[in-house]
Amino acid sequence: MLRRAVTVPLVVLLTGVVWLTLPLWLIGAAALSPFVPGHWRALRLTWLLVVALTAESLLLVVLLGTWLASGCGRRLRTAYWEGVHYDLVQGTMWLLFREARRVLHLSIVTEGPEPDAHPGVPLLVCCRHAGPGDSFTLVHALMDWYDREPRVVLKDSLGWDPVVGTVLRRIPARFISPGSGEDLEDQIAALATDLDGNDAFVIFPEGGNFTVERRARAIERLTGLGLHAMARRAEGMLHVLAPRPGGVIAALDAAPEADVMMVAHTGLDHLNGVRDLWRELPMDKQLVMRWWQVPRAEIPEGREERIEWLYDWWQHIDDWVEQHRPEDLSPGRWRR
């Protein structure tokens, strides 16, 4: 609460200052653009930052209004107000992705089962974690294409963003702190309990965004734990981290009626930092998301069998990424 009491006014104040000085920002970005590679790169990035900052500030003002209208927060966790907050998130993300597609020339292609393929069945969504903003893209697709209400597990550090920290404390979600000593599997199980037919529990089994360095550390960790068979399987996967099965198994146990949705994506996963993003603007890229729905009857029951099943799927995702990676990326650059 104290953290948001500091960050919320700062964001709103910063937005006001940016809009008051916006002509200067736009003139400066336009003047800089001829000296920067890429067509109007500086101007495009400036505009996107202004849009994102404005959307965040407006949403914070609306969130204050919902808090007051819900009896100063007393009814916020009711089904009605949770639905209101999901609608607010969906509308804001629609705006941001619309601007990203328009300004960055970014397209998003979704492949997989139709949204009504299994109506009324709750989903456990296991997604590859790589590239900038893939968690936001996944949530956007779940809400916009599949018409689902996501329940998200994410690191506590993301709660520093005032909108994320506010909204995700008003809808079913969990901030977790790896290394804090808390039982993370219990927290995951609690969030995955009592899913209804339009819910989607979201988890990233790799536990972090893919980089070559993290891949090597994950293999070393498995070897150090004496899990040599799992380490060998991880060595055979070039584009994903070795999945950590504990959270997935906890979610499966907590939601025995749910199907599983496996998600792979490629197109932006070679962008590992601000320098990569700057180099690629305007992107003119296509992000492809591939979904596979796994019926509950096809999921094994035993723990060891489920670990093997999860590794099999992650190998399948790795193979799919290998086959669908962007053509303009050479293998050397991709694996850098």
Results as ranks from 00 to 15, higher is better:
268 L>F: 03
156 D>V: 05
103 V>F: 04
57 S>P: 14
238 L>E: 11
86 Y>H: 10
114 E>D: 15
52 A>M: 07
16 G>D: 12
104 L>F: 15
326 P>M: 11
57 S>V: 12
136 F>S: 05
28 G>I: 07
18 V>S: 10
247 G>S: 07
193 T>C: 08
275 R>Y: 04
220 E>T: 06
50 V>N: 03
275 R>E: 01
299 I>Q: 09
258 A>E: 13
153 V>F: 03
135 S>T: 09
291 W>Y: 14
102 R>S: 08
23 P>H: 04
208 G>N: 01
216 A>R: 01
46 T>G: 11
259 D>Q: 06
217 R>M: 06
329 L>Y: 01
312 D>H: 12
169 R>T: 13
247 G>D: 10
336 R>L: 00
323 Q>L: 11
123 L>E: 15
325 R>E: 02
82 E>D: 04
130 A>F: 06
30 A>K: 11
10 L>G: 15
258 A>K: 10
245 P>E: 02
25 W>Q: 10
129 H>P: 15
28 G>D: 14
85 H>D: 09
109 V>R: 13
224 G>E: 13
150 P>W: 03
45 L>M: 14
190 A>C: 02
248 V>S: 15
331 P>W: 06
283 M>D: 01
133 G>T: 00
240 V>P: 11
315 Q>C: 04
245 P>H: 03
18 V>D: 11
297 A>R: 12
317 I>Y: 03
37 P>C: 10
280 E>Y: 05
147 D>I: 08
219 I>R: 12
23 P>I: 09
312 D>S: 12
